[in-house]
């Protein structure tokens, strides 16, 4: 144990809690991907040194309290309207980095019109889209992104395309629009995936100052409470099922 206490010195620290995260304990369920994504957003803002020039737009959903966890300026949008608020913020303050943080119930359901038109207008904002295929906050109802056959509290026998329609691949849809600059789909279930997502978010923030269009980062996530699985099982389920419908990787990059 002496060796271990020797190692535990400030100069040997290689990774720790980002200073931009506040001391509040996150209200998310154990193992929720939101916490990991909050952390990498905080890391990116910290590394770029843009804490006083970043404005986040928090959504309605589980991540509604995002403003309690990252120490930057925030606005709280009505359900699904974060891209509209971000548009106004970026147009009024073009020197600020503006990003929205939205879940799939917020972005892909009630906010579909807002995100499509924000992409179509090519606003210079970053959109971080957390896709876990379910409405987590309200008790695990079916979302537009729910997989076929997936059981939720409103589709107890599994999603049936005849009754409930097909899953919405919103990221591919947005890639077809001319106003988008960088579209990618990532995940945060392993350390390698976290690194890739962090690079993607950083790229998005950089693109938002290059006047090339909207950057859209989808993060395929888990909702272990909604899926009724343990956090580790939920990650395995996501790899097995979600990645089939929502394959990871860059979809569009105009500067490449």
């Amino acid at each position: 144990m002496d060796i271990i206490s020797d190692i535990k010195k400030p100069e040997n620290m290689v990774y720790g809690r980002p200073a931009l995260l506040t001391d509040n304990v996150m209200h998310y369920c154990p193992g929720c991907s939101h916490g990991t994504v909050h952390k990498i957003v905080a890391e990116v803002i910290e590394e770029m040194g843009i804490q006083d020039r970043t404005i986040g737009i928090s959504p309605v959903g589980c991540s509604v309290f995002a403003y309690n966890y990252i120490d930057i300026d925030w606005q709280e949008a009505a359900h699904g309207r974060a891209p509209a608020l971000a548009t106004a913020t970026k147009r009024l303050c073009p020197d600020k980095y503006v990003f929205t943080y939205q879940g799939d119930g917020d972005l892909a359901s009630i906010g579909t019109a807002e995100i499509i038109h924000a992409c179509s207008r090519g606003e210079n904002i970053v959109v971080i889209f957390i896709n876990n295929g379910i409405y987590g906050m309200t008790g695990g109802q079916m979302a537009p992104t729910t997989l076929l056959g997936m059981k939720t509290s409103t589709t107890p026998y599994g999603r049936d395309p005849k009754l409930n329609g097909f899953p919405l691949k919103i990221t591919e849809m947005l890639a077809a629009l001319d106003g988008t600059a960088f579209i990618t789909r990532q995940s945060v279930h392993t350390a390698a995936a976290v690194r890739k997502t962090k690079n993607a978010i950083r790229k998005g923030f950089e693109y938002s100052m290059k006047d090339v269009g909207l950057s859209f980062i989808e993060v395929v996530s888990t909702c272990n409470s909604g899926w009724k699985l343990s956090p580790v099982e939920a990650n395995a389920w996501m790899v097995e099922h979600m990645f089939v419908k929502y394959p990871l990787g860059d979809i569009k990059d105009v500067l490449k």
């Binding site: 060796i3 271990i4 020797d6 190692i7 535990k8 010195k9 040997n12 620290m13 290689v14 990774y15 720790g16 809690r17 980002p18 995260l21 304990v25 996150m26 998310y28 154990p30 193992g31 929720c32 991907s33 939101h34 916490g35 990991t36 952390k39 945060v188 279930h189 392993t190 350390a191 976290v194 690194r195």
Partner: peptide
């Protein structure tokens, strides 16, 4: 920590949703 085989790779801290892990390495 279960044993002393840690190499300080920080994989655990990177995936930790609640950012509770601090990693030291020499």
């Amino acid at each position: 920590l279960a044993n002393d085989s840690c190499v300080g790779c920080a994989s655990c801290a990177m995936v930790c949703p609640d950012s509770v892990i601090t990693v030291y390495r020499v």
